[in-house]
Design a protein around this nucleic acid. Structure first.
Length: 296
DNA sequence: ATTATATCCTGATCGC
DNA sequence: TGCGATCAGGATATAA
């Protein structure tokens, strides 16, 4: 379940390894991936990597460029590059392999052969996708990145608007904010002490501010810790993250809330598990001051 | 327009 | 011990 911090971890690990490499051949092994415009990729240089929402974006530039190991600047890539977007969905993995010529083993779904080594896309559940875009305008997602410098509490408030949708499913809508999935949506609301079923329009400005601050803090912290390995996530080096040790509510139904010891509750929202603390995250707005008194 | 449901996929887990 | 049913969830398609 790679969400924003997990994808960011992978991008950071792969950037020095892949930047400047020349793509020799794109091998699509799983027919479920469909046909791709490989001519926008093959023969070009990897100008850099970038997280595009929950996707890993490989930026490809003309082969005469000199590319530093940290990649070309973001604005340069936005002007010049074509993009390979890799969506890992649930079980997708990206790893660099030294041997680019040997036989591939399942569940390898695609292999990008480079002038040195190869990038392997493995994915047991085969839900992941590959997409080729000719430019940044095609590749850029509709939703805003929660860690973008321009996304202040005010902007988030405007984005939320007054709709009656429950806040938790709203946070997972990729056409509004990109990068949040089931884990971090629950965690952000717990940290901000907002009930997951609260209508978006009912949030006070104070709550929006709190959500904004907590959300960004959690994502940054999770990136520092290499993401969350809840069940299956592994980074580009085949190692787990560490943020699962800091999860407050996700996957902890029945266990005591780390803040007030009340048992964590699980319920289903839009066919997905939502976890929350019934005491810290009151259904009604206005109980914040009370829960604040509970703090040690 | 918005919201709800079904679908995809496969390994792990559960109940009998 | 074995086997079928259920679950996990990101995104999209279709239905209401």
């Amino acid at each position: 379940m790679p969400e924003l911090p997990e994808v960011e971890t992978i991008v950071r690990q792969l950037t020095p390894r892949l930047s400047g490499r020349r793509v020799l051949r794109m091998e699509v092994l799983d027919p479920l991936l469909g046909t791709l415009e490989t001519e926008l990729i093959e023969g070009r240089l990897i100008g850099g990597l970038r997280r595009v929402g929950k996707q890993v974006g490989l930026a490809l530039v003309a082969p005469r460029r000199a590319v530093p190991s940290h990649g070309l600047s973001p604005d340069r890539l936005e002007r010049e590059a074509s993009w390979l977007l890799i969506h890992l969905r649930m079980t997708g993995r990206l790893t660099w392999e030294k041997d680019a010529d040997g036989p591939t083993t399942p569940p390898t779904r695609a292999r990008l052969r480079l002038d040195r080594g190869a990038l392997l896309f493995r994915d047991v559940r085969r839900l992941g996708t590959l997409r080729v875009c000719r430019n940044w305008a095609e590749a850029r997602p509709a939703g805003l990145d929660p860690l973008a410098p321009g996304l202040g509490a005010r902007r988030l408030g405007q984005l939320l608007g007054g709709c009656p949708t429950p806040i938790k499913p709203w946070l997972m809508r990729q056409d509004r904010l990109v990068g949040l999935g089931n884990i971090y949506a629950s965690e952000a609301l717990f940290a901000a002490r907002i009930h997951p079923a609260r209508p978006v329009g009912s949030l006070t400005m104070a709550e929006v501010t709190r959500l904004h601050r907590r959300l960004r803090a959690i994502l940054r912290r999770a990136i520092e810790m290499g993401g969350t390995s809840f069940s299956t996530f592994e980074n580009a080096l085949g190692r787990p993250g560490a943020y699962q040790e800091r999860l407050g509510v996700y996957g902890r139904a029945g266990q005591p809330c780390p803040r007030c010891k009340t048992p964590i509750v699980r319920f289903v929202q839009q066919q997905r598990s939502t976890f929350f603390c019934p005491r810290c995250q009151s259904e009604e707005e206005g109980c914040i001051s009370r829960s604040r008194e509970m703090r040690p």
